[in-house]
């Protein structure tokens, strides 16, 4: 357990500088997502300061911007203004949907507990894409394989931390062993609560914290730590409901459906079998009836 590596993402001190996003692209030498769009002026989204929109095969890290200037975006009320920022990436789930469904063993669990991809095994079937509850892993049209954050496997192997965490000027991203990070996260939540910022809670592990949202449209809503898919090795401190950050409140393994689905399928097959047999029996009986009935 102690050699599990991960990251703690403290969104309460994220300044949205995107250094992490750039550091990731630099270290992993990822191309522009859509150069044509940038060149012909179709890349501007008008979505706050976010012009890369979501994680992709070329953006393994993505910084989200959520403007909450006042309780209701449609009114002039600007009380308790907030601008939430969150740096997102692969969560390196303890129970990783992507890894579970991969039919080739391209996705694998590393010695650090993270989820890496053997690029030369991946057949590009995209099953993992549909299986990740967070929309993280993505198909790369250029290579015909999938890509996502690999927790800087290459750096970790030579004893370095992750590139994104290294670049983060506010230590909103911290790399370390999951145990240490959990302790750190817990302390941070307690500190914020003691300062009246009771909205802070942990997404990824249930460390027992709970509070109330203090601003924005969900002001007053109760929040508490959520553990999803058996825990996230890359986990978050959030200040509003998970959905606000585009995170599912109840992420789950796709396998939850396997046995039930197969069971129901078998039953339906049985029913079909029986009806099939019945059909033939019925016809035969009808025939015989006719045969007996007359000449």
């Amino acid at each position: 357990m102690s050699d599990l590596r991960g990251m703690f993402v403290d969104t309460s001190i994220c300044t949205g500088c995107k250094a992490c996003q750039v550091a990731c692209k630099e270290w992993n030498d990822l191309p522009m997502e859509n150069e044509a769009a940038v060149r012909d002026h179709t890349a501007f989204t008008g979505n706050s300061y976010d012009n890369t929109v979501h994680l992709s095969a070329t953006n393994w890290r993505h910084v989200k911007f959520i403007e909450q200037i006042g309780p209701d975006p449609s009114t002039a009320d600007r009380s308790d203004p907030r601008w939430l920022m969150m740096s997102d990436s692969c969560k390196h789930c303890v129970q990783a949907g992507c890894l579970e469904v991969c039919p080739t063993g391209a996705l694998y669990r590393t010695q650090f507990g993270s989820v890496d991809i053997h690029q030369d095994v991946c057949i590009g079937c995209r099953y993992c894409v549909g299986a990740c509850p967070f929309g993280v892993i993505a198909f790369n049209q250029r290579t015909g394989r999938v890509n996502k954050c690999i927790l800087c496997q290459d750096r970790l192997e030579i004893g370095m931390g992750t590139a994104c965490a290294k670049a983060c000027p506010t230590s909103s991203l911290t790399f370390g062993t999951v145990g240490e990070l959990q302790a750190m996260a817990n302390e941070r939540v307690k500190l914020l609560h003691s300062r009246g910022q009771t909205d802070a809670y942990i997404y990824g592990w249930d460390l027992g914290n709970s509070g109330k949202i203090t601003a924005g449209p969900n002001k007053g809503t109760a929040v508490k730590d959520v553990e999803v898919v058996g825990g996230l090795n890359v986990f978050y401190l959030l200040l509003d409901k998970p959905e606000v950050y585009g995170l599912p409140a109840h992420a789950a393994l796709p396998q939850r459906n396997f046995v039930p689905s197969a069971g129901v399928a078998l039953i339906s097959a049985a029913v079909l079998g029986v009806t099939g047999l019945a059909a033939f029996r019925r016809n035969r009986m009808a025939e015989n009836a006719i045969a007996e009935g007359g000449d």
Binding site: G130, A131, A251, A265
Partner: peptide, 16 residues
Amino acid sequence: NVTNQGVWSDTWLMGA
């Protein structure tokens, strides 16, 4: 059924 897609994974009846 064994994905996290909307609709597809919301039921157990796809196989059937």
